[in-house]
């Protein structure tokens, strides 16, 4: 796996990309693996030590996958936080939060998109999706359909295959 440790300027850019969710600061080291995937590493090693290990051993993973930095269909650069990335910075994610109803939460965990009868506060961009009790961040969604639908990005392995508990 190719790794590239993200420098301070690019890290700032990453933070700026999720600023609308409330993010202000990232203390962990950020590492890019592949073209788009960004991972946060909280270990004690500095970048030189990490590259030393990388030269010696085949690395198949480092830190936690926290988001994707990509260019969308309209050519706009955007950042999509991962479910686990949201957990890391949950105290900062105070903006663009959508709390689901219990029925919607059930659909969410099946990997379905969520439709709303009325328009949401936002008509585009990413939002932080929270559970019905408002306690848990349960993923990121993209607002679409003029603010009436949430398109979810819950990874397959984090979905429920059948009925709920």
């Amino acid at each position: 796996m190719k790794i590239q440790i993200i420098d301070r300027a690019k890290k700032k850019k990453f933070v700026a990309g999720v600023e609308d969710l409330g993010m202000k600061k990232i203390t962990q080291m950020l590492v890019k693996t592949g073209k788009e995937r960004v991972r946060a590493f909280s270990g004690d090693l500095d970048s030189e030590a990490i590259y030393d290990i990388w030269r010696l051993l085949p690395i198949e993973g480092i830190g936690l996958y926290v988001g994707k930095e990509m260019v969308n269909r309209n050519g706009v650069r955007e950042i999509r936080l991962s479910l686990d990335g949201m957990h890391v910075w949950k105290d900062q994610l105070t903006e663009r939060n959508v709390i689901l109803s219990e029925e919607q939460e059930e659909e969410w965990f099946k990997g379905k998109n969520i439709e709303f009868g009325e328009k949401l506060e936002w008509d585009r961009g990413f939002v932080c999706v929270k559970s019905a009790d408002g306690k848990d961040f349960i993923g990121t969604a993209k607002v679409g359909d003029g603010g009436k639908t949430l398109f979810g990005f819950l990874p397959k392995e984090r979905r429920r295959k059948s009925s709920t508990i």
Binding site: G43, L45, L57, P58, G61, G63, L64, D84, E157
Partner: peptide, 26 residues
């Protein structure tokens, strides 16, 4: 990797090597 992600492990580096060979290399 999937379990490390789910549990929010952020301080691990995952390597793929036969155990003895890894130790000898390091």
């Amino acid at each position: 990797n999937s379990n490390l992600e789910r549990c929010g492990v952020m301080n691990a580096i995952v390597t793929r090597k036969e155990g003895v060979a890894l130790c000898e290399r390091l």
